[in-house]
Simulated scan of single mutants.
Amino acid sequence: MMDFDVVSLPDADHVTEGEEAPAFTRPLVTTDYWEDVALSDLLAEGPVLLVFTPMDGAFPTTYVYNELRDRGVADDVQVAGVSVSSPYEHATTIDDRGIQAFEGLFSDPQNGVAEAYGVEHDLDGMAGVSEARPAVFLVAEDRTVEYAWVSEEWPEFPEYDDVEAAIDEL
């Protein structure tokens, strides 16, 4: 049994289903390189499952990426992670987690994308330091959010069957 407390998170004023997903451009890290990529660039190729996680190395990040990888979600939709981690950390995570099928991981060190989506989480006892709370947004080509899940507790994980059902409905 893991030794940690489940913590309720404050309410989040996040993007919801039917709303337009905020546009952004950040470094997108893949197994080979990274470069600035806009969300709209990915959407030009089809829907995107945006997966917000705490920094790389945190166990919720590992669990979420492992589950999505094991379910083969990237076979049905583009998957892109978003966190405060650096491109170097993302490159290691892609390799360690075996998530080469993902489109990549966006590096968002100032947490601005998480703020735009309403999923930022201030870290206790660390003034001015925040990261994304676990969240999943399925975004259609026209930037409409088709599915949204945002954690209310830490740690908490999406209902993966619901994520797959939303992908199937596209």
Rank of each mutant, 00 (worst) to 15 (best):
38 A>W: 00
66 N>Q: 15
102 F>M: 13
170 L>F: 01
81 G>N: 06
38 A>E: 11
156 E>G: 13
47 P>G: 06
72 G>Y: 07
27 P>N: 14
20 E>F: 01
148 A>W: 02
90 H>F: 04
119 V>A: 03
32 D>P: 00
61 T>H: 14
77 V>C: 05
66 N>S: 09
163 V>T: 11
1 M>N: 05
146 E>S: 14
67 E>L: 00
28 L>H: 05
157 F>Q: 10
154 W>I: 13
26 R>L: 14
11 D>T: 10
54 P>T: 13
108 D>H: 08
139 V>Q: 01
95 D>H: 12
17 E>D: 02
146 E>N: 09
153 E>K: 13
123 L>W: 15
2 M>C: 08
66 N>T: 15
28 L>V: 12
40 S>W: 01
153 E>R: 15
1 M>R: 12
13 D>T: 12
93 T>P: 03
72 G>A: 06
68 L>Q: 01
167 I>T: 10
125 G>F: 09
60 P>T: 14
161 D>G: 14
34 W>Y: 14
112 G>Y: 07
146 E>Q: 15
86 S>G: 07
98 G>W: 13
102 F>T: 02
12 A>K: 15
38 A>I: 04
66 N>W: 09
85 S>D: 03
90 H>K: 10
126 M>C: 02
89 E>H: 04
7 V>W: 04
168 D>W: 00
88 Y>F: 15
170 L>T: 04
138 L>K: 05
54 P>L: 13
75 D>W: 00
26 R>M: 11
56 D>I: 03
55 M>R: 06
146 E>Y: 02
144 T>W: 12
3 D>G: 07
45 E>K: 15
163 V>K: 08
82 V>D: 01
53 T>C: 05
38 A>L: 03
28 L>W: 06
155 P>E: 07
112 G>S: 12
29 V>M: 00
106 F>N: 07
130 S>T: 10
116 A>R: 05
76 D>N: 13
60 P>H: 08
83 S>R: 03
61 T>F: 15
2 M>W: 10
159 E>K: 10
87 P>N: 03
44 A>H: 04
96 D>L: 14
50 L>H: 06
136 V>H: 04
49 L>N: 01
35 E>M: 01
90 H>G: 06
